[in-house]
Structure formats: structure tokens, C-alpha cells
Design a protein around this nucleic acid. Structure first.
Lengths: 142, 142
DNA sequence: CTATATCCGAGTATTTTGGTCGGATATTCA
DNA sequence: TGAATATCCGACCAAAATACTCGGATATAG
């Protein structure tokens, strides 16, 4: 039951990107050096963010990445889901449709798994990315 | 971010145990056949539950396992923690004490990790095991 | 004394994760 | 045009975690 480094490094990198990409694209190599993550590995993480339309890329010299939309419109849930896949600790077919899971009829744990899945998603969806970035900027000033 | 089969099978086995152990100890082999889990693997799971004082064992012929305390006094959180270790998706030293984590000063994600950890634990702690068993019994009747 | 249990540690196979590498493509700028 | 600096992409590899299996010891009822 751990969030993998994909999620942890990825969110860190995304905060970094948000902080430094206000005026121009930020290259992976600059994020990598600030955050101490290898460029090669970062590539994989950012690819997931791009696929989820959270960042846009600018190729070529002086290229890099920029945010695809205003930070206020992004939740931490979106970011983590892009990086980690869905944040449902338990894959239980019975949660979504009654009939798919053969043991669903007698599987009482279903309600437990649903509660767990819902709570984690609600939590991360409620965390606004803009707030996080704001907080981060203030930390770096002080 | 997945709950492992330890947790999933373990909780299922524990519900089974609770349902069938009202009058006499339930053997692992009977749980195993009902739940379609190998006896050998179940041994490992139940060992964790025993270590956490959630079940008691009775050795020898006609032996097996019984609950160590009334089901109403058990939360799903206790069970899952016994099986999985702590249910904190992110190990971040900065959550507990400010000084331990060298990057804590600028690590804004800390608040995110704490919210995630807290929400999952609150959720599972609030689910009463007695309710679950009751629900399960009613399902089996109908 | 035998059958049926729990107990326990070691070992192995599979899957997931974390990370590297090589090379293709795009773009700027001299 | 060509060199430098980027993203892009798929394959690959190593390490760690997970999901088991196995063999044998110990306990106890009948």
C-alpha cells in the first residue's frame, strides 16, 4: 500500500515545473538537476503528464515543458492519477457492476474496498495544485 | 498504490473465520477450501492476525482458530494493518517531525502526503468489523 | 501411536518498480 | 547547412517486493 516513486518524484517535478515555467518552457535537464532525478527517468514521468494533457512540450533548442492549463484548474488527484494510474487501492469488479464479479453476491468486502477507494480519491481531488505551488513559492522566498 | 493480496485474502479469510467460529475453532483447511486459497499461504496470513492478537489458535486435532475478542471491538483498520503493515501510502519523515527530513524545508508535498495518509486510516478505522460480519451472514441466508 | 492440526523458517517463482540506453525527430542559431 | 540542444520512443536490465511452495517440528484428541 505505497505510493511509488513515480508519484512522489512526479509531483515534485510538476511543482518545480509550475514554479519555473511562468515565462518560458522549462527543460527536463534543469528540473533534473534541481530535483536530483535522472533526466532519463524524468522523461518517463513527464510523458505520463503529457499524455494526460497536464503539460505541453516545446521541442528543439530552448524547448521544454509548460503547463497545459492554469494551475488553479488542476487538482493533485489528476496529477497523481496521471502518474500512478488510478488511485484505487483495490480492484474489485463488484464495485462497478453487480454482475461482473462471480463472487460478488457473497463478497462483503466490496463495501470496504469502495469506501477506501472513494476516500482516497476524494482526498486528492480536493487538494488544489495552485495552492501547493503558492505555498512552495513562499517557502523559497523565506 | 494497490492493496496487496495479503490484505484482500486476509480480510476475506477473517470474515469467514468470524462467521464459522461461533461455537468451535475453525481449521485453516476449511477456510482454505471455502475461500479457495491454499492452506500454506493462509498460514502466513493468519500468523499475522495472531501476532496482532486478533485471533487465538487451538492446536491439535479439532483445533483451529477463534477470534481473540468480540467482533464489535474490531475495526477493519486493525485487520488490514495487521496484514499489510501500516497503511500509510507515503513514508515522509517530514510528516512526523520537522527536522528529520533534510529537504522538509522546501518540501511542499508533505501536506499532501499527510492528508492522504490520514484519510485512508480514518476510513478503515471507522469501518466496524461486526457490521461487516453481520452483513455477510445476511447475504448467506438470502 | 496415528491422524489432524498449528507452527516456523527457508526457498523460489512471478510481478512490479526503478532506472538505463540508444537512437530518431524537431528546432534554433551561427 | 550543420552543430547543439531539446523532446520523443521503445527496448532493455537490475533490484525489490509479492505471492506463493515446501519440509519438517510440535501439539493434542481419540
Amino acid at each position: 500500500m505505497k505510493l511509488s516513486k513515480k508519484g512522489i518524484y512526479g509531483l515534485r517535478a510538476f511543482v518545480d515545473l509550475a514554479v519555473y515555467s511562468e515565462n518560458e518552457p522549462v527543460s527536463l535537464s534543469s528540473i533534473a538537476s534541481r530535483q536530483d532525478i535522472s533526466v532519463n527517468y524524468l522523461e518517463q514521468l513527464i510523458a505520463k503528464l503529457k499524455k494526460a494533457d497536464l503539460v505541453k512540450s516545446v521541442r528543439g533548442v530552448n524547448g521544454g515543458y509548460i503547463l497545459a492549463k492554469p494551475i488553479e484548474e488542476i487538482s493533485v488527484g489528476e496529477i497523481l492519477r496521471a502518474l500512478e494510474g488510478d488511485l484505487t487501492p483495490v480492484d474489485c469488479p463488484g464495485i462497478k457492476s453487480e454482475s461482473q464479479c462471480e463472487s460478488a453476491k457473497y463478497c462483503v468486502s466490496k463495501t470496504v474496498w469502495k469506501k477506501i477507494n472513494d476516500s482516497i480519491n476524494e482526498t486528492v481531488n480536493q487538494i488544489n495544485f495552485g495552492e501547493l505551488v503558492k505555498e512552495s513559492k513562499e517557502m523559497q522566498k523565506g
